[in-house]
Write a protein that binds this DNA or RNA. Sequence first.
DNA 1: TCAGTTATGGAAATGATTACCATGTGCGTC
DNA 2: GACGCACATGGTAATCATTTCCATAACTGA
Lengths: 140, 140
Amino acid sequence: MPWRPTRQRKAVLSALHDCAGFTSAQELHEALEADGIPIGLTTVYRALHALDRSGQVDVVREKSGERLYRPRPADGHRHYLVCRDCGLSTAVDADAVERWAEDVAGTMGFAEVEHTVELTGVCDRCRVTPAVRSSAEQHS
Amino acid sequence: MPWRPTRQRKAVLSALHDCAGFTSAQELHEALEADGIPIGLTTVYRALHALDRSGQVDVVREKSGERLYRPRPADGHRHYLVCRDCGLSTAVDADAVERWAEDVAGTMGFAEVEHTVELTGVCDRCRVTPAVRSSAEQHS
DNA sequence: TCAGTTATGGAAATGATTACCATGTGCGTC
DNA sequence: GACGCACATGGTAATCATTTCCATAACTGA
């Protein structure tokens, strides 16, 4: 399975890094088109899918079921505390949960354990000046 | 907002209790119709929504994004270890995560914290005799 | 250049969920 | 019991993110 770094794929990865918080495939597509980069929505989805499979991005799901992506930071964190208001995301030390998940599953006799942990809240700043969640208004 | 225990609502709650593991709205609808209980899909969704709001059921989301429901047991547990193969779900002691979530959020300056924890794996039995996930084949 | 694989992208399909809305039902009141 | 009305129902149509299809385009090694 060769990996051709095409114009579009590089653009998706780059656009993803330009976003402060988590971003949806559709937002990403709009942002790219707005930047004058012609790209099909299908291609954005495919690129994100590939990045996910190869572990270059983290994925969370918000209440509506929409998938949100963000480039995985170098330190390899995988769990975040996300602000419901502005989308600000903060990497969280989740070693405790990782261990806990392994333990519980082992005790129950389950194998091949996978876990999903999602934390949401309202960040400091938004408690003072509420912002509408939109990629344009996210702060870092 | 009055709560009228109509024929349909009682049927949904009852059908939900008859299922071993987590069940989707659509499966529930099929099961009800199969039992000769005429009910609209819309009504099933509404009933589940209401049960969710009033805290009588727990909801998880599987990878596809589909929502799965199960009646909340008396002991008030809210986290489960679910078998990806047969759907078997086991209540899990998640006090540790609850506390952890509060702590982390507090440290980061976040308020109104909510958390989602989902554990999946393959249970003992399924490791031996793999089952296709279907409401008819779930074991308790 | 040629052939073959891989990538692209518009349009159509999917599938769970929700909105709409006309009709039906439970229930307190007279 | 009959009346009235808020609440419930359920079929159909809309939503919406995501996937599938498929014909076309781009890349790559020979």
